[in-house]
């Protein structure tokens, strides 16, 4: 048997590989029922695409929380592709509607952090769209190549901002807002008032900015105790706003005030023992 195989291997000729060309690392989260099946069909049909995407199978795209995506960007992913069933086709009825809402939050946070939101892409691929899958991967790989390698690994400040975005994505407020977003649009709040989508998005965007800034204050003050002025300068946020954030963080017992040499007060994040 081995001979057969060796023979077959020997017959195939490689095209010359560009030896030192940078190749982006792209993670693809694909839902089991549609997009993973579409990728399977793409293979069965032998549609070719670049080798950069590494697929992770999940049961539903709705599984992908903002935290997962943002942690991977913090870890240096060049691009992330999320694939789900077409809207209304979700194997789990409404899962992908939530995915759509979450992707919006993720992109907003990436923007706040200073990472190109184009590195994150959501696509609906059905189980019969094999060719579409190859096109998406080809296009997305090109797009990420144009953006160049993730700067997170080399730029410590950017990495801090990415961590802050990840932190913000895990706050109760943002998760609860995004979790309830669809319900608020469709069935209304506790008073039965349906909320307008654009209004709601404005509200969430404002909350996202706040939470990102607070999270960034925590990240920066984890490294060392810092003054309001210093934080304001690093973050490029007016000091009065930084102070307002600090008041909130102190109420939540997440940051402590210190008085080095009895001069300007500085703040240090309170780290909860052992927990990530």
């Amino acid at each position: 048997m081995a001979e057969n195989v060796q023979h077959a291997i020997a017959q195939k000729k490689d095209e010359p590989a560009g030896a030192n060309e940078w190749e982006p690392k792209i993670i693809g989260f694909l839902c089991n029922w549609c997009s993973y099946a579409g990728a399977d069909l793409c293979g069965v049909s032998r549609y070719q695409y670049p080798t950069n995407v590494r697929a992770v199978r999940v049961m539903c795209s709705t599984r992908i929380s903002p935290h997962i995506v943002l942690e991977l960007f913090t870890a240096g992913a060049d691009g992330i592709l999320v694939g789900g069933c077409h809207l209304n086709d979700c194997h789990y009825i409404t899962g992908n509607f939530y995915t759509e809402k979450r992707l919006r939050l993720m992109k907003k946070l990436l923007e706040d952090a200073g990472i190109e939101p184009q590195r994150l892409r959501l696509e609906w691929v059905s189980a019969s769209e094999g060719e579409k899958f190859s096109k998406i991967v080809t296009e997305f790989t090109e797009q990420v190549k144009k953006l160049g390698p993730s700067k997170v690994k080399k730029d410590a400040a950017l990495k801090t901002r990415a961590s802050a975005a990840d932190g913000a994505s895990q706050t109760f407020r943002l998760r609860a807002l995004v979790g309830k977003e669809l319900g608020l649009e469709k069935t209304g709040n506790v008073y039965g008032q349906k909320l307008d989508q654009t209004e709601l998005e404005k509200l969430i965007d404002a909350a996202t900015k706040d939470e990102f800034e607070r999270s960034l204050i925590l990240e920066l003050s984890k490294q060392k105790a810092r003054s309001v002025k210093e934080l304001g300068q690093i973050m490029d946020v007016p000091t009065d706003k930084v102070l307002r954030h600090i008041v909130v963080l102190r109420q939540k017992n997440m940051i402590a005030m210190e008085h080095p040499d009895g001069l300007t007060p500085t703040y240090k994040a309170i780290e909860i023992g052992g927990e990530q």
Binding site: V58, C60, R63, I64, S65, R102, V178, G179
Partner: peptide
Amino acid sequence: CGCCGATCPEG
């Protein structure tokens, strides 16, 4: 499906 997991505000 994992929707609740990705949603839970407390993780």
